[in-house]
Write a protein that binds this DNA or RNA. Structure first.
Lengths: 134, 134
DNA sequence: CATTTTCTTTACGTAAAGGTCAACAAAAAA
DNA sequence: TTTTTTGTTGACCTTTACGTAAAGAAAATG
């Protein structure tokens, strides 16, 4: 195994392992236009440089925050993430994050009310059980 | 339109309309064994009696509480809902409801932590925006 | 150079809960 | 009785985010 300086572009398998995802995932992100075309070696093998990797990590981060791939696509439509100007996209990103915060709040509210319903239902069923045994 | 006493069995379209679901849904529940076979008229038309309707309402209620059809199937495997002895299934149901309450609690906790992450990320992005404009 | 590992594309499969046709039969209404 | 409405089954469609397999080419290793 050759020592690899961080400057050299990396191939898909190594990158995937490094990020804990599969090669399929990376190719898929390219497929749906989230990752843009990466450089290829002579034989067609994909290679990823620092910026590509940053971008992929960015995507994974957003995913972690619950933003769907589709939403990221919309984000990319408005502001070209290709250009490495991550600074340019921040306003739109803030907007999306805000939207997500309220979505999450809403979900929490729904779940809380759901919890109450379940507990209520539980009480009613317990009553049935009790009355039945008398 | 004939006046319909509640004693008469009802056909699928009417029942669906009454419950605000589609006929496909009712047939689907039968398909996956949640509804059991209903009585048919001479020509094959399904008819539903009071107990069938109660059962369907019960299923919809559980669904409303966030219990998946698969979980209902498991419920039905252990205790035959067919037999109308809803009393018999209550202990298991209580168990499932309790399980769900903790699942919901867990989801709420996850969402809360997710919310924090998003807000943190938002702050970091705002910082980038601000520093950039100076 | 030979072998092994990794890469390529293409394309079908998966889960959940039904939606949506098609082609045809039965029930209800006129 | 003749329409019109509603019902029947069967099978393919939808969404999301990849998994998986096949067949073959390129890259890395010995």
């Amino acid at each position: 195994m050759t020592e690899q300086r961080n400057e050299h572009p990396v191939q898909i398998g190594k990158l995937a392992k490094q990020l804990g995802i599969t090669t399929r995932t990376i190719r898929y992100y390219e497929e749906i236009g989230l990752m843009g075309q990466s450089e290829r070696l002579g034989g067609g093998t994909r290679t990823y440089n620092k910026d590509d990797i940053l971008r992929l990590k960015f995507i994974l981060k957003l995913k972690e925050l619950g933003i769907s791939l589709k939403e990221m696509q919309e984000l990319a439509e408005n502001y070209d993430i290709n250009q490495q100007d991550f600074h340019t996209i921040t306003p739109k990103l803030i907007e999306i994050l805000d939207l997500h915060i309220s979505k999450v709040d809403e979900k929490i509210a729904n779940l809380s009310s759901l919890r109450n319903d379940i507990v209520d239902y539980r009480v009613r069923i317990m009553d049935i059980l009790t009355n039945q045994q008398e």
